[in-house]
Amino acid sequence: MNNPAIAVQVENVVKRFGEQAGGWLGPKRPAAKIAVDRVSLQIRRGEIFGVLGPNGSGKSTLIRLIATLLLPDDGQIGVFGHDVVREARQVQTLINRVSVEASFFKKLSPMENLLYGARLYGVPADLARRRVVEILQRLGLEERAIYSPMEEMSRGMQQKVAIARAFLSQPILLLLDEPTTGLDPRSKREVQAFVRELRDNHDATILLTTHDMSEAEALCDRIAIIDGGRIVALDTPAALKQRLPRNGHAPTLEDVFLELTGKPLTADDEA
């Protein structure tokens, strides 16, 4: 697990939910659901790695496992050589995450929320204040909005603040769980440009889940398609499309997705 060129190493990881202890008296009941089923993958340093999958396929669970928010039932996950279970603190200093729900203290302003986040990661307050303004203005927020309560902001604006919060700690691994879901086309483009900038100018490795095929194709160096907790394909977008025969037209990434999973894409929160 100690290859510096490898940002994330996932080996035979299993995560089950619904397994009840059965109390202290009875035997364990069988697991209700396997969310991640013997998943193995490597993400290279500096790569934008996409994970596509239908609702409930295990994408968000995989991200939570890497983010130290869930413990794997089996297998190992390493982040820049650190095990996410045994060396969780070291992993936490290297990563940050944006989830599909922009989770904030709604009465507090973006500045107050981000200052809180920055302090948690040991960023000095003066530096954090300057960078909050820079990043949020770079993402298209007006200065007035930076000091107004989050509850007065649209979901798109809240999501931009969430991205700024994740970037504020300068993570070298950024976990983006459907970061553009619910954003208008302009905001979506701004966020996508920012993601590219993070990779190109800040040496960040990015793991991205999305329901947007064009976004995945435009941003990702490689894509894993996950279904029922298992990886059913993993390759570059171009190589994935070559897997399908040309039936009068060049296959799209969506064609590949539908072929491999047999399910349509819908944007929703998942387990």
């Binding site: 939570r64 983010a67 130290t68 928010l69 603190r89 936490q92 200093t93 990563i95 995450r97 989830s99 729900e101 989770s103 904030f104 203290f105 709604k106 986040g117 948690l120 990661y121 040991g122 919060r165």
Partner: peptide
């Protein structure tokens, strides 16, 4: 209540 629990518990703080 605010939905920030995951964010706080994944921060590198004892």
């Amino acid at each position: 209540w605010e939905g920030t629990i995951e964010y706080t518990l994944m921060a590198p703080i004892t």
